[in-house]
Design a protein around this nucleic acid. Structure first.
Length: 386
RNA sequence: GCGCAGGUGGCAGAGCGGUCAAUCGCACUUGGCUGUAAACCAAGCGGCCUUACGGCCUACGGGGGUUCGAAUCCCUCCCUGCGCA
């Protein structure tokens, strides 16, 4: 189990400074959670990830179930041993894959709604199913986008798998709904997610901590209903999931509707968010944890996050030819191993030469940068600045 | 010197009389990415004009020809590779 202690509450906002004690050590919150979907931060060893300052990782039930299978992971002593990660770990339930491999793939869209012009004429309504999977009352029949293999994941299955994987914190199995879903669909899916949440609570036999997930998309009454319901169940913390509405404004609204209805003494995790620009905003609304693929995913595409002044940041695309002639480190003020030892022209070259080390160096730096960025936010709470 | 095979956009390589400003790939440029299907995806990539549909110009080694029409056929020159002297 875990224990969450709030060390300080901001007077200026709903931000909190805290620590989560887990069987694998302490997490200082607010914390950023790098995404290790397949039990790895792509391109890095676990020791390297630790040296970026990352406190905990989130891995994925769906992917690890597909390969190598939870039984193998359990046999080698659980996911910590398997990947040699000594610090806290969470596993996501597979609920996001209900969206990303389902309607997300069909509509070629992400879970954030970019604007009205993205909205198709026909919204997803109840009764419609994604092309590659079938969502039923009991769970979801997936079809692997890789080899077409079918597999079933429901609340019981997800919890059982996560039990075998053995992370410190697990998530209830939910349906992450699409921003293209209409009100009726979202409501029905949310109610089904609530029924699944109850099943997850009773199915859990391990002493892992489990977070319930609030759904309800961009609809205020559904979000509130979901927050109240999830709050009424025996969870160790909460995830805010699903479609967060129309950009940052939509996300803010969702957080303002839901967080005040959740038990204040438990940690709140905002699932899948974290552009750097979102972080402080989200923390001020009462979020303690958030995970995001951006530092790793963008790193592999040549993007470096660097400081601009004291409080802002830039996104550099090292793939651009001008960086071949740039002899600065990625970030002059950064004290990470990459910035201490390598320069932009070298990384730009490696990127063009398609050398994997380019991705490794960028991933390392980005994770370090994100860690520092959140550490800075913690300090601001400590100092009463936010 | 003779014989054979070739010379196409930054590279590589299709096309072999009209639908060719020229397939595909690479490179290059730009854009996208928020609980990872993702070392990925999309668009552009001779020049000029147009918001757009589209239009004009210059191009398939050089030159000349045949034809209504040539990257594609013929002649000639230059160059490259291989083989034989």
């Amino acid at each position: 189990m875990i224990k969450f202690r709030i060390l300080k509450r901001s007077r200026k906002s709903r931000a909190r400074l805290g620590v989560i004690e887990t069987p694998h050590g302490v997490i200082e919150t607010p914390a950023f959670v790098p995404v290790a979907t397949q039990a790895v931060i792509k391109t890095l060893t676990s020791e390297e990830v630790a040296s970026t300052g990352s406190q905990l990782l989130i891995s994925n039930t769906f992917h690890l179930h597909l390969k190598p299978g939870e039984d193998l992971v359990r046999r080698v002593g659980g996911i910590h041993n398997f990947m040699n990660w000594k610090r806290p770990l969470m596993t996501d339930s597979g609920g996001f894959q209900v969206f990303s491999l389902g309607f997300g793939m069909d509509f070629n869209s992400g879970k954030m709604f970019k604007g009205r012009e993205d909205m198709p004429e026909n919204l997803i309504s109840m009764g419609s199913q994604p092309r590659n999977l079938k969502i039923t009352e009991d769970g979801v029949y997936f079809r692997s986008p890789l080899d077409g293999k079918e597999l079933f994941l429901g609340p019981k299955e997800s919890i059982k798998i996560q039990g075998k994987l053995g992370a410190d914190i697990i998530f209830a199995f939910d349906e992450c709904t699409s921003p293209h879903a209409n009100y009726d669909y979202v409501k029905k899916a949310m109610e089904r997610t609530h029924r699944w949440a109850e099943i997850c609570v009773t199915a859990k036999k391990s002493d892992q901590a489990m977070f319930g997930i609030v759904q309800g998309s961009r609809f205020q009454n559904l979000r509130k209903e979901s927050a109240k319901f999830i709050n009424s169940l025996e969870f160790s913390g909460y995830g805010i999931g699903g479609d967060l509405g129309d950009g940052v404004a939509g996300m803010n609204k969702v957080l303002d509707w839901t967080l005040p209805l959740l038990n204040d003494a438990l940690p709140r995790h905002l699932l899948g968010i974290g552009y750097l620009g979102d972080m402080e905003n989200v923390v001020k609304r009462g979020i303690d944890l958030f995970d995001c693929i951006v530092p790793t995913h963008y790193g592999r595409r040549g993007i470096a996050f660097v400081a601009r002044g004291a409080n802002s940041f830039d996104k550099l695309n090292l793939g651009k030819s001008l960086f071949l002639k740039d002899k600065d480190p990625l970030d002059k003020k950064c004290d990470c191993l990459v910035c201490q030892n390598y320069r932009r022209h070298y990384i730009a070259h490696l990127l063009r030469a398609k050398e994997i080390t380019a991705m490794k160096l960028l991933t390392f730096h980005n994770l370090h940068f994100f860690s520092k960025f959140v550490e800075n936010i913690r300090n601001k709470i400590k100092e009463g600045k936010i």
